[in-house]
């Protein structure tokens, strides 16, 4: 982690881009545009008990969190994906997605700050 308590870590992204701030900024913007839509999709799928929809969305969003070093949120999505796939702990699904939304809000704030720091 870059600092104590931080949910994200951009070390990997910096190494992948060779520290190119314009690219880091582009990827953060893409994530901040796409992730809320995926999150909303998961919430709607949960309400309609569309577990295949939950699985697919969690599956697609999961690796993106890894790029930003958000390992905890990535692990939570892995669990959501597994539960939706195996139809286990479905009663807890709404709570888990709520927990994920809370984590996402922190991640969003951290990434917005990182975006400002890139100056791009």
């Amino acid at each position: 982690m870059e600092s104590t308590g931080s949910l994200t870590d951009l070390t990997y992204l910096r190494s992948l881009t060779g520290g190119a701030n314009d690219k880091i900024a582009k990827y953060i913007r893409m994530f901040l545009t796409g992730a809320p839509i995926s999150l909303q999709q998961m919430e709607l799928n949960t309400l309609s008990k569309d577990w295949e929809g939950v699985r697919q969305t969690a599956h697609a969003l999961k690796p993106q969190l890894g790029f930003f070093g958000a390992k905890g949120a990535e692990e939570l999505l892995r669990e959501i994906e597994r539960n939706a796939s195996d139809h286990t702990e479905l009663g807890m699904m709404q709570k888990k997605i709520e927990h994920f939304r809370q984590q996402y809000e922190i991640i969003r704030v951290e990434l917005e700050k990182a975006l400002q720091e890139t100056g791009a």
Binding site: L16, K26, Y27, M30, G34, P63, Q64, F67
Partner: peptide, 14 residues
């Protein structure tokens, strides 16, 4: 790839 971020990252890298 239907995930724009994943697509862009791999495209930029290659």
């Amino acid at each position: 790839d239907d995930e724009p971020l994943q697509l862009e990252l791999l495209k930029d890298h290659l």
